[in-house]
Design a protein around this nucleic acid. Structure first.
Length: 506
RNA sequence: GGCGCUAUCGUCUAGGGGUUAGGACGGAAGAUUCUCAAUCUUCAAACCCGGGUUCGAUUCCCGGUAGCGCUACCA
């Protein structure tokens, strides 16, 4: 607003989303991205995407694509992009710095040794005294001889040192150093571990705020140790409560199925903005009872102070279907079982908040993909009739099917019989409808007037008049309002379907 | 096991030393419209347990319990 800058404008935050590309984009990861993004955009800072791909064994290109695909769908942007695997030199430099200061040591214990063998103790493994205390000469000698080693951080063991940091969400954190194991910095193949690479990059990229899942809260003590050993001031930390399943466990593909994948939401017909809105409300609150919020509203309202500390349950009913094939199509999913009711409601809210033109444009590709040829004009006329009747975009297929097909799918002729009526009444209604509809203009008011008059003449209630016609033209009892439906359907189709119904019941 | 974190309706949450503990989703009932949906109204539904501190704790402190996380040369 003001053109004159504040006397001391705070430095623009630099935040990062750092997924490891070992699978599809997880809803929890998407949420972490969103919180970082919201923080960056709210504070006009920089959003960085960094692929933490130091685990050569498990990283896949497909996963990288899946992450991009998900973020693209959500229309989430970032300003800088890095690949950790291309920055190995930086990581090794940091390891070297720490080693030269004597704050790390070589561990020549072969990889994959059991903890029990390492320590001989029954408790938690903390370090291997033999390796930690190895003389510099012997260490150098064995390294020079080509013996492989891992580089371990020499965590202070004496003096009752405390490692501490302040978390923007969880407050003051401290842990005594003696409870932290001598974690690895470099693997015996020379590759950096996550802890090292992450800290080296965060320092190098001048990350100001690390906003990530609470599963890293305890790791942060190690990170603080690394930053300080390498001569950097640790950034600010903000840990996010985890997303958990109704059984309280962390969401996982294995246990919980497709509900944990962002693409499931996309394919089921969620609006990206609704999905983002839903995710934001898990573990964060604007504290003003607002629920349905758009992108900009979220950006404006976001602050780290609104983040909650307890894990949030994604409240779905159906866990993975063990015996369904490996590729469940969106049509297989029962939305009420698969998705959190609140997500569904929010999506419906966003659908209704969308201008008809926009909604129509989003619906059309889905309809076409299902094999129906439809003009944008026709879709635009159908959209207002179903927009209050669908919670997911995909539901357009079921809600407006009778607009798309030439031939109505078979239905039970008994459906044509109105409340408190019989087949004879249905027949009379339909025959009369055929007569009057043949001559009336297919416009809402004219249809309304004509059909109500016809009902009076027949001595039936309006509802008893409308119901058989509705079933005749829609093929089912529950459908959008009749006059609008007839208007969009057109006279020819309506008359033909009424004829068909007369044949069925006659 | 060790260490860390957490605990308000079924779920997401607001609140906070004195409140009828608020909202939303979902549920139930009703109103309304040509059905359905939407909308509106109403109802049921919560401060984990035990000790302190205090005139007074759901709120602050301690303990317990439970849940989650970390405890890899995974991230």
């Amino acid at each position: 607003m003001s053109l004159s800058p504040a006397p001391v404008s705070p430095p623009k935050p630099r935040v990062r989303f750092a997924p490891s590309p070992t699978g599809f984009l997880h809803v929890g990861s998407a949420r972490t991205f969103i919180f970082n993004w919201l923080y960056a955009r709210h504070n006009r800072g920089t959003m960085i995407l960094r692929l933490d791909d130091t685990d050569v064994e498990r990283n896949t290109e497909a996963s990288v694509q899946s992450i991009f695909e998900g973020l693209k769908w959500l229309d989430l942007s970032w300003d800088e992009e890095y690949k950790q695997s291309e920055r190995g030199e930086l990581h090794r430099q940091m390891a070297e710095t720490i080693f030269q200061k004597g704050l790390a040591y070589r561990d020549f214990t072969p990889a994959h040794t059991d903890d029990s063998e390492k320590s001989g103790a029954q408790g938690t493994w903390l370090f291997n005294p033999g390796m930690r205390e190895l003389s510099r000469e012997e260490s150098d000698g064995r390294a020079a001889a080509g013996e492989p080693f891992a580089l371990r951080f020499r965590v202070p063991r004496e003096g009752g040192q405390l490692v501490r940091f302040t978390d923007a969400v969880y407050g003051e954190q401290m842990k005594s150093a003696v409870d932290i194991e001598d974690f690895a910095l470099l693997r015996s193949d020379g590759m950096p571990t996550y802890h090292l690479a992450s800290c080296a990059d965060d320092a190098d990229l001048r990350i100001s705020h690390i906003i990530r899942g609470q599963d890293h809260l305890t790791n942060t003590f190690k990170h603080v140790l690394i930053f300080e050993a390498a001569g950097f001031t640790p950034p600010q930390f903000a840990h996010l409560p985890l997303l958990v399943a109704p059984d309280g466990t962390k969401l996982s593909k294995r246990r919980h199925g497709p509900v944990v994948s962002v693409t499931t939401y996309r394919d089921a017909g969620f609006l990206p903005e609704a999905f983002i809105n839903f995710l934001c409300l898990l573990g964060w609150s604007p504290k003003n009872d607002r629920e349905q919020m758009g992108r900009q509203e979220l950006i404006d309202a976001f602050s780290l102070g609104g983040i909650n500390r307890a894990n949030a349950v994604v409240n779905f009913k159906e866990f993975s279907k063990p015996d369904v094939g490996r590729a469940p199509s969106p049509a297989d999913l029962n939305p009420e079982e698969t998705f959190d009711p609140k997500a569904l409601w929010l999506n419906a809210e966003h659908i209704r908040a969308l201008p008809v033109e926009d909604l129509s444009a989003r619906l059309l590709p889905i309809v076409r993909e299902a094999g129906f040829n439809l003009t944008p004009e026709k879709m635009l006329r159908i959209t207002p009739l179903i927009r209050e009747r669908i919670k997911l975009l995909r539901e357009v297929l079921a809600a407006a099917d009778f607009f798309f097909v030439d031939q109505l799918p078979p239905y039970d002729p008994a459906e044509l019989i109105p409340q408190k009526g019989d087949a004879a009444m249905a027949l009379r209604v339909l025959k009369r409808a055929k007569e009057v509809l043949a001559i009336v203009e297919f416009k809402h008011d004219a249809l309304d007037q004509t059909l109500r008059t016809a009902a009076q003449e027949l001595g039936v209630k309006a509802g008893q008049m409308f119901q058989p016609i509705r079933v005749a033209v829609c093929g089912r009892k529950n459908a959008p309002p009749l006059f609008e439906t007839l208007e969009v359907l057109g006279k020819d189709v309506a008359l033909a379907r009424i004829d068909e119904a007369i044949r069925k019941i006659g």
